[in-house]
Simulated assay, not measured.
Amino acid sequence: MTHLVEWDAPSRRRAEEDWEPPSRRVGRMLGELMLAAGLVLVLFAAYATYGKAWRIESEQNALAGELDRSWAASAGRPVEGQPMARIHIPKLGRQWAVVEGVSQADLRKGPGHYPRTAQPGQIGNVAIAGHRISSVFWDVDRLDRGDVIVAETRTGWFVYRVVRQRLVLPRQVEVIAPSPGRPGEAPRKAMLTLTTCNPKFQNWQRLVVHAELVREQAKSRGRPAELKGHP
Rank of each mutant, 00 (worst) to 15 (best):
M1A: 12
E212K: 13
M191N: 15
Q95Y: 12
R12M: 12
G38M: 09
G184S: 08
P83Q: 01
R221D: 14
P199N: 06
K189Q: 14
V98M: 09
R145W: 08
P231A: 11
V209Y: 11
A190S: 15
L30F: 11
Q95A: 14
R14E: 11
N61Y: 11
T155Q: 12
I176V: 15
E212N: 10
T2K: 13
Y114E: 05
G81F: 01
A46W: 07
G156P: 03
G130A: 05
A190K: 06
R223W: 13
G112F: 08
E66C: 00
D18K: 13
W138Q: 10
W7K: 05
A151C: 05
A177F: 11
A151Y: 06
L192D: 06
E57D: 14
G27F: 03
S74N: 11
D68G: 01
V140L: 09
V208D: 03
V209S: 07
G101P: 07
L92M: 09
Q119G: 03
P83D: 00
E226S: 01
A53I: 00
R24C: 00
L107P: 04
G156H: 08
F137W: 06
R206S: 07
V79C: 00
K189L: 12
N198E: 15
M84A: 11
T196H: 05
V159H: 06
P90Q: 08
R171P: 01
R14H: 07
A105M: 09
G121T: 01
F44K: 07
A105S: 14
T117Q: 08
R14N: 04
G124V: 01
G81W: 00
F137N: 09
